[in-house]
Write a protein that binds this DNA or RNA. Structure first.
Lengths: 119, 119
DNA sequence: CCGTATCCGAATAGATACTG
DNA sequence: CAGTATCTATTCGGATACGG
């Protein structure tokens, strides 16, 4: 049960936030959360599939981000008791609300990347 | 000249990024950049005014964020040679493109804050 | 008024090894 | 397969003092 493991106990408390923008950035900030949300936009992915989508991530950082996002109800975690174990991740309704936003970021990012050497 | 000071030289190189989402989060991630963009949405603010808008920020962090955002062409910096000095900050066209995005974040954040104790 | 500089602790991130 | 644990390196962020 992730909510009781020692591993989980880090960062259970949010820092104080001063406004809604601050709050939102605390929830989807960090190095990988945006990319995780984006990877899950079309449905369900297993842990290992996510790991391959998010190039460069370690198990430690991926697990940590996933636990925080589960706690914050952005994603849900579903264990399938096959052998070996399968674990599926997908967006919650709240998480799905963020997809248009991530998409805006992506479009803006592509635009900026294309203009990097011609400003 | 900020582009030549020792202070500026930190973080001149971006880390490697793997996709546009990653790129975008590197540019507006961090603790204060979202709030700075939001504060400048309606026009120009001076350094001290910004500082009062972004409650809790220190001069170090504000200056650092402003320099990075200037380097990334999200904001522009205008020095007015009065005495004492005035320095005005405003959004560039590229920075203005991010406002709808920040607004989405803010709306989502307010929605989430309201549902924190009734999930 | 608008920053710079320095010190230092906290938080974040990576590498590596190991387990049910 | 899906993590956990540990150790270390790097980065971030706050406090404080000072300067043009």
């Amino acid at each position: 049960m992730p909510f009781h493991s020692k591993f989980y106990q880090k960062k259970v408390q949010h820092k104080r936030f001063y406004c809604a923008v601050d709050f939102a950035f605390q929830r989807i900030g960090g190095k990988y959360k945006g990319r995780i949300l984006w990877a899950l936009r079309d449905g369900t992915l297993r842990y290992g599939e996510l790991r391959r989508h998010i190039e460069g991530v370690t198990t430690k950082m991926l697990t940590q981000a996933l636990k925080e996002m589960e706690r914050d109800r952005l994603i849900s975690r579903n264990v399938i008791a096959t052998k070996p174990l399968h674990v599926e991740y997908s967006l919650t309704p709240s998480g799905k609300l963020l997809i248009p936003f991530i998409d805006l970021m992506r479009v803006w990012g592509e635009h900026e990347i294309n203009n990097l050497h011609s400003p």
